[in-house]
Design a protein around this nucleic acid. Sequence first.
DNA 1: CTATCATTTGCACAAGGACGCAAATGAGCA
DNA 2: TGCTCATTTGCGTCCTTGTGCAAATGATAG
Lengths: 118, 118
Amino acid sequence: MSKRRPATPKCCSDLTAAINPRFFKALCDPTRVAILVRLATCGRPCTVSEVANGCPIDVSVVSRHLAQLRDAGMAAGERRGKEVYYAVRFSAIASTLRHLADAIDACCPPTWSKPKRN
Amino acid sequence: MSKRRPATPKCCSDLTAAINPRFFKALCDPTRVAILVRLATCGRPCTVSEVANGCPIDVSVVSRHLAQLRDAGMAAGERRGKEVYYAVRFSAIASTLRHLADAIDACCPPTWSKPKRN
DNA sequence: CTATCATTTGCACAAGGACGCAAATGAGCA
DNA sequence: TGCTCATTTGCGTCCTTGTGCAAATGATAG
């Protein structure tokens, strides 16, 4: 008599809300990921020039990538004088990922129902 | 006398390894995400036609998206007769996300060092 | 104010990805 | 074997996005 599972479990609407396109789009491009890792590896906030230094791509492109990471909530930019220091928002990224992981778990039925043959 | 943090913390190489481009590329496209959510909402393995039914896009496109989700490790496809049943790999997705979240945390220094002025 | 440096933005071009249609493949059935 | 249905794949097109160069903006020093 106890209902097993609603036809459309409410968890999945949460799932849609948990998937922020801008967030994952930011992780699509290998160059952008490399920039993010480089920023994380640095261990402290870095300027655009510092990040671009040694990279084969133009500074303007690095600036755009950093802005995109900022808009995605994965980095924070702070201007100090002429320079802008970017830092990885570690906890924000981790919490976003864990939030989605929880939403996924909530969507997963404990026992996977056998598909009915039609 | 105790060292605070190595110049290049080993955690960040883990970070690079934890970010699978194919995984996040799969979540870039809104249509693909919608298909994933639809598959999750269904609550059971669905055929390509079932997923495509009611969608404004062509079946072939849905098939391609599902294949991409499969290659990304987010879905599993199993052929039964003429049809192929796709299912969301909930635990695989969740564990991938949590693994990355852990790698991010490991990369984050407890006390964020003040940026040195150059 | 002018000069200089760091960063951002406008613009044009190239590369990559999504899409639809048609053809090919896989699998069951008469 | 021939037919039908479900899925996949090839191909051309369109749209998005990454990229470099040049110009504009922001900010400090002289």
